[in-house]
Simulated scan of single mutants.
Amino acid sequence: MGRPVRGARRESPPCARGRRRGSSTSDRPRCPGPAAKPITGMLLIVEDADAEESFVPALVAAGFEPRVREGGHRMLRTPERDAHLHVHGEGAGEIQDYRDLRDWLRHDRADRDMYAAKKRELAKKEEWPDMNDRAQAKDDVVALVLAHARARRAGGRAQDDRATT
Results as ranks from 00 to 15, higher is better:
47 E>L: 08
60 V>A: 03
121 E>G: 10
12 S>V: 00
129 P>H: 07
161 D>Y: 06
104 W>S: 04
102 R>N: 07
73 H>P: 14
155 G>K: 03
103 D>Q: 09
27 D>F: 13
135 A>D: 05
34 P>I: 01
127 E>D: 15
142 V>W: 10
46 V>R: 00
112 R>E: 09
39 I>Q: 01
110 A>C: 08
83 A>L: 15
28 R>Q: 11
141 V>M: 06
57 P>G: 08
8 A>D: 04
159 Q>W: 03
115 Y>A: 09
29 P>M: 06
49 A>H: 02
85 L>D: 00
40 T>L: 12
94 E>S: 15
111 D>F: 10
124 K>F: 03
95 I>K: 02
40 T>M: 13
113 D>L: 05
149 A>W: 08
161 D>V: 09
135 A>C: 06
33 G>Q: 00
141 V>E: 00
97 D>G: 12
49 A>N: 02
76 L>P: 00
13 P>L: 08
64 F>H: 01
8 A>L: 09
82 D>G: 09
6 R>A: 13
21 R>G: 06
83 A>G: 11
112 R>N: 11
22 G>P: 00
24 S>F: 06
149 A>Y: 11
34 P>C: 01
84 H>Q: 14
19 R>D: 08
161 D>C: 11
163 A>P: 00
142 V>I: 14
6 R>Q: 13
88 H>G: 11
61 A>R: 15
126 E>N: 03
43 L>W: 04
3 R>N: 06
6 R>P: 02
29 P>T: 08
27 D>P: 01
52 E>Q: 10
66 P>Q: 06
75 M>V: 08
28 R>E: 11
62 A>V: 07
137 A>T: 05
140 D>Q: 07
98 Y>W: 04
19 R>C: 05
56 V>I: 14
2 G>W: 13
135 A>K: 04
121 E>I: 12
107 H>L: 13
92 A>T: 03
104 W>K: 05
133 D>V: 01
99 R>L: 14
57 P>V: 09
83 A>W: 13
165 T>W: 05
80 E>K: 09
151 A>I: 05
101 L>C: 09
63 G>A: 08
43 L>N: 04
49 A>F: 02
16 A>V: 07
135 A>Y: 13
42 M>W: 06
59 L>N: 03
45 I>G: 02
61 A>S: 15
77 R>W: 02
65 E>I: 15
80 E>W: 07
138 K>A: 14
31 C>W: 07
81 R>Y: 11
48 D>E: 10
92 A>K: 00
19 R>H: 12
114 M>C: 12
37 K>H: 12
21 R>V: 12
150 R>H: 00
113 D>G: 01
132 N>A: 05
25 T>A: 14
20 R>G: 11
165 T>E: 04
10 R>E: 11
48 D>Q: 06
60 V>L: 02
44 L>Y: 08
4 P>F: 11
152 R>N: 08
37 K>L: 08
82 D>C: 12
35 A>T: 15
38 P>R: 15
80 E>Q: 10
17 R>T: 06
128 W>L: 14
30 R>E: 09
50 D>K: 04
45 I>K: 02
5 V>P: 02
99 R>G: 11
39 I>Y: 03
101 L>A: 07
144 L>N: 13
156 G>I: 05
152 R>G: 04
87 V>Q: 01
165 T>C: 09
78 T>Y: 00
21 R>L: 13
131 M>R: 03
160 D>N: 11
108 D>W: 06
126 E>T: 05
86 H>R: 03
55 F>W: 04
46 V>H: 01
125 K>L: 14
103 D>T: 15
113 D>M: 03
12 S>A: 08
